[in-house]
Design a protein around this nucleic acid. Structure first.
Lengths: 162, 162
DNA sequence: CGCTGCAAGTTGAGAGCTCAACTAGTAAAG
DNA sequence: CTTTACTAGTTGAGCTCTCAACTTGCAGCG
């Protein structure tokens, strides 16, 4: 029954540190955006993705895919963003089921206002604290873990089939 | 106005990969525990900390400190765990304001039942995917980031003040 | 003792997320 | 053209978390 491969003491310590950092960093980022720009991190990310899209518009499902978010979550989020006037929903001309989310000027302005504070927080909390080597390592480690969870979501360069 | 130190292209890519991994891993861990053991990851962690404490008991504030959780959050969580019969609340004999959370036998049993699946998930998602060197790097990186966010929470070995 | 200030913990409202239905439209097969 | 299967997206209930009060008790000072 118990063929569980438990963690070694060293692994356990790494895991505990990692998990703690995980929670603290997420909270830190979220709190900064909430405080300074009145939006949760998730919504910031939606605005970012939309702002990079052609015409600042994307179909809901594409947006969900790019963000690694569920349809339901995105639907709730966009409803909220629409109520704030940062995003608009339009009908999709080629598929009547579809919905297209468009970043409004107000949304773009909100993003522009929020970005400096956010980036500064990222820099101070992460990049300023790591050596260039560690930054590279973090990228590789993240990609490896991501690849194991959901190969579809991993960035280009994955060459394994299992 | 704009003396923001923006991220370089390389940094941005690391950040995006990291954030995506962040979200995916959290969701992955949470879903596994929710599915197999009917508890969120946060609650699992509470049970773990309690199980390691002397007499499987801790004051609320100590528990909150060890878990890096807010008092409010812990209070809600323990209320839920108490309703499930996994934790009991007792009065603190030395401080009538205080409350002591105690892990029940049922709670311990639930933890024992949940642990193998959880550890296996951690191993498969993280440790099996990284080289020993990457594991060490991850520990160092996590500690460095954690240290920057809240020095109080960082593990022993922090020797900076400024 | 009687204040004032602070710490421990709880509570309730509100926000975001998940999960499981559900609506509506597309696509493929007969 | 109808039936069936599937996809896009939304909705509502329930859960956890945050934030801001609020209650209760401790501690120090007069």
């Amino acid at each position: 029954m118990d063929d569980t491969r438990w963690l070694s003491a060293a692994e356990l310590e790494v895991w505990r540190t990692f998990v703690t950092m995980f929670g603290a960093l997420g909270e830190h980022m979220d709190r900064q955006l909430q405080r300074d720009s009145a939006m949760p991190y998730t919504y910031y990310e939606i605005l970012v993705v939309l702002s990079h899209a052609p015409d600042r518009a994307l179909r809901m499902s594409e947006l969900a895919g790019l963000r690694g978010s569920s349809r339901s979550r995105l639907s709730h989020a966009v409803a909220r963003l629409e109520a704030q006037g940062w995003v608009e929903r339009r009908e999709c001309p080629t598929d009547k089921r579809g919905s297209i989310a468009v970043l409004t000027d107000a949304g773009f302005a909100a993003l522009e206002a929020a970005a400096p504070g956010h980036v500064t927080t990222v820099r101070e909390a992460v990049f300023d604290r790591l050596t260039p080597e560690q930054v590279r390592a973090l990228g590789a480690i993240s990609a490896a873990i991501l690849d194991g969870i959901d190969p579809d979501k991993s960035l280009p360069g994955c060459r394994e089939l299992g």
